[in-house]
Design a protein around this nucleic acid. Structure first.
Lengths: 165, 165
DNA sequence: ACATTACGTCAGCTTTGTTGACATTCCAAG
DNA sequence: CTTGGAATGTCAACAAAGCTGACGTAATGT
C-alpha cells in the first residue's frame, strides 16, 4: 500500500491522468455496448429495449415505477419500449394483486431467451476483460465506478442485490 | 456450466459478479456524463457537441476524418455538430496546407472556454472518485477499461497520447 | 368525498444517429 | 494531362430514443 500520501505524491490525480480516465470511460463504454448492439441491430430493437429487458430479468415482478427510477427516463419513453416488448410477447405485464394500480413485469420464455443471448454476449466481453486484468484490478474497477455514481444511483445499484433474496 | 476453477479461485468471474460489473458500468456512466449534460442543457448543445469539443481540444488541428474515426459516427452526423460549432464561433476549420482537401479543426478562445467549463466539471467528479478509491483502485480501473475496449479503439486511445508531443 | 398515486396514451418536439445521392476539390498515378 | 479515387460538404428522408404537456382511468389513502 503506497497511499500514505501525506507527502502529496498524488500523481494519479493530475489533470492529464483524469483526462485519460475520461477517455478510457468513453472508449470502454463503446466496447461495453458493442456486442449487444450488434445483436439488437438484427431485430427491431435498440439499446433502450436491452436496458428494460436486463432490469426486468434482474428483478422479476418489478413495477413500472420502479423501473422508471432505475432507468432514469420518462414514463412515456419507457412505455413506448415496454409496449413493443409486450406486443411482441417478450414481456408480460400483470396487474398487481395487493395494489391493482401497479403492473408487475416479467419476461416470457421468449423474452428470457433474448435476455440470455444479449447477456451472454456482454458477459463474455466482461469476463475476458476481468480475466485479462486480474482480480485486484477488478476490485479497483468496481470501487472507482461506484464512487463515480450519483448517490441516488448508488443506492439503487445496491438495492437491486438486496431485493433478490 | 461454470469453468473448472482449476487452481485458482475465480470467484470474480462468476456470472453474478459479471452482472454486477455490467450494472456498475451502466450507473457509473450516467454519473460520468451527468455534470457536463447539466451545463450543456442550458445552451443549445448536447453530448455530441461535448465529444467533438473534447477531442478537438485534445488534438488541436485534427482532421475531420480523424475525428470521425475516434467518435465512430457518420460524417453527416458529425458535420451537423461541427457546422453549428463553427457557426457559433467555437470551432475554427482551416483548410490543410499540405493537403488542401483536409480541414484542420481548432477551438477558438470561446470554444476553449466552454471546453474548460465542461472538462472542469467532469474532472471534478473523476477526481473525487479517484481520491475516494485510491491509487491502486485507479490502476485497476484503468486496466479493466482498457481490456474492455475493441482493439481498434484501444489503438486510438493510445494514439491520442502519442500524437501530443 | 376527495386528493393522490400508478399507469397508459395522444400529440408534438429535439437530439443524434442512420442511408443514399450528388457536387466539389484535389492528390496521385497512368 | 487526364482521370480515378479520396476527402469533404450538402440535401433529403428517416429512425431511435429521449423530452414536455395534457388528459383519462382506476385504485388507494386520508
Amino acid at each position: 500500500m503506497s497511499d500514505m500520501q501525506s507527502g502529496e505524491n498524488l500523481l494519479f490525480l493530475t489533470d492529464e491522468q483524469l483526462r485519460q480516465g475520461i477517455e478510457a470511460m468513453f472508449f470502454a463504454y463503446r466496447g461495453f455496448t458493442a456486442d449487444p448492439d450488434r445483436i439488437l441491430a438484427t431485430m427491431a430493437y435498440g439499446r433502450a429495449h436491452h436496458r428494460a429487458i436486463h432490469f426486468i430479468a434482474r428483478s422479476p415482478g418489478t413495477t413500472v415505477n420502479n423501473l422508471l427510477g432505475i432507468l432514469g427516463v420518462t414514463k412515456q419513453s419507457l412505455n413506448r419500449v415496454l409496449r413493443t416488448l409486450i406486443a411482441d410477447g417478450l414481456v408480460e405485464s400483470r396487474v398487481g394483486s395487493s395494489d391493482k394500480r401497479e403492473r408487475h413485469l416479467h419476461l416470457t420464455e421468449e423474452g428470457a431467451a433474448l435476455e440470455r443471448k444479449l447477456s451472454d454476449a456482454q458477459r463474455a466481453r466482461m469476463r475476458a476483460a476481468y480475466r485479462a486484468a486480474g482480480p485486484e484490478a477488478v476490485a479497483g474497477f468496481r470501487q472507482v465506478l461506484e464512487a463515480m455514481m450519483d448517490p441516488e444511483m448508488r443506492r439503487k445499484y445496491h438495492a437491486i442485490r438486496e431485493a433478490e433474496s
